[in-house]
Each structure stands twice: as C-alpha cells, then as structure tokens.
Write a protein that binds this DNA or RNA. Sequence first.
DNA 1: AATATTTCTAACTATTTAGTAAGCACCCAA
DNA 2: TTGGGTGCTTACTAAATAGTTAGAAATATT
Lengths: 110, 110
Amino acid sequence: MEKNLKIINACDTNCPVKKSLSILSGKWTMMILYQINTRTIRYGELKRAVVGISEKMLIQELNSLVEHNLVSKKAYPEIPPKVEYKLTELGLKTLPIIDQIAAFGLENLV
Amino acid sequence: MEKNLKIINACDTNCPVKKSLSILSGKWTMMILYQINTRTIRYGELKRAVVGISEKMLIQELNSLVEHNLVSKKAYPEIPPKVEYKLTELGLKTLPIIDQIAAFGLENLV
DNA sequence: AATATTTCTAACTATTTAGTAAGCACCCAA
DNA sequence: TTGGGTGCTTACTAAATAGTTAGAAATATT
C-alpha cells in the first residue's frame, strides 16, 4: 500500500504533501478534526474541547472545513440554536493522519 | 497499536496533536521532511527539490529542524561549502505522518 | 583581476493568520 | 422587563510567518 513513496519528485504545485497541507494546515485545523473524530458534536461542546480557541476562529475553521467537504453541518431549527458537526467520508480519511500526529506527540514529545 | 485513540480528552496544553504541530506546522516544514526522507541531501539539492522556497526560509526551517532534533547537519570544511542534511532517528519517526499526508493528497485531492 | 560557486546571514517589508471585543437573533424563565 | 443560553458576525488590532534584497567568505577557474 505505502510501498513506493520512495520515488520522490520535486515538490512543485502537484506535490501531494503541499496539496494536503493547503487544506489541513493552520493552528487549529487538525486539532478540530481530532476532536470531532468519529463523533457527532455540537458547536458548544467543540468549543469546550478545543481549549483556547476563540469563537471567531472556530467558526472560521468549521466553515472552511465544510467548504472543503471534510465536515458536514446540521442545524436544527430550535431555540436556543443547536448545530451539529461531524466528519464527512472525506474527513474521516484524514483521521489516519491525525492518529499518526497524535501518536508521534505521545511517544516522542514531552 | 492505534487501538484506543478514541478515548479523547480536551485539547489543552498537553494535547499530543498540539505538541506535534508546534514542531511540524508551517508552510514548508513537512515538505522539507518529505524531500529529505531517507536520503542524505545537500542544501542546494534540497533547494531545488522544494520548488519555490526562498533561501531564507529553507535555512530557517533547517535550523529549526536541527534545533528540534529532527534533522542532523554535517558541514564539510571546503570551499565552496558543502553541507549535508539527513533525518535523525526522531526525524525518521515523522515519516509515517508525512506518508499519510502524501497518501491523502494523492488519493483525494485534485 | 574578475567571476562563479555554495551556504548562510541580516535588515527590511509584506502578507497571512490569529486574537479581542462588541453585538445580534431568538425564545424562555424569572 | 430583564437576563440567560446558543450559534454566529463584524470591525479592528496584533502577532506570526514569509518574501525580498543585498552581501560575505574562500578558492578555482577564466
């Protein structure tokens, strides 16, 4: 499966790493994906889970993730508002990345 | 191995994802690791491989990676200078992350 | 004597990204 | 009538990140 990633080409505009990072980079993006993970989660819960993020950033990131089709959003017409987020099929495919990043942090960083 | 990463805690200062990203985030960092990969590579080669990066950024990133012990540097006392970089043992442990990111890009992004 | 080579530094500027603070909408409960 | 809970927006400011330009150092080659 991950056999011949050793055949390396220069990182130009078609570099798969560059393309992935164009969507996944940013201070909060991967932490949000990590927190959503396999669950369905409300905006408020997520805000509490991602400690330190501002509402502006969280909304901004979520909008961007929805735009990129990594996250889906379901708003219930209730008062007070209730909005749920979860990973799309594509979003779920980022979890192996996140898992590796988490594992690296756990095993190697203080 | 990656069994119970489902037990999720809030992302505070001890979040492994956050800790990893503090080292690995940035526009060029992972692309540089991807390019170095398992080889020993000179500064100039690397510069050609990471298309679009400026010398300042490349040096800055390499210094930071050396500081974080992901990359080792060997300078030969020659003129013109010759400097080789390669991943350390710790740096090699980031390759599974990079591989996942590359795979995601290849399989899912245009 | 002038020029090219290779790695790296420094000063300065521009751009991108993130943080702060205030407020809106809606309905319910006190 | 006031205030609370929830999700979100806007305007403004600050900080982090990246780009540009110029140049140094020592030798080989022209």
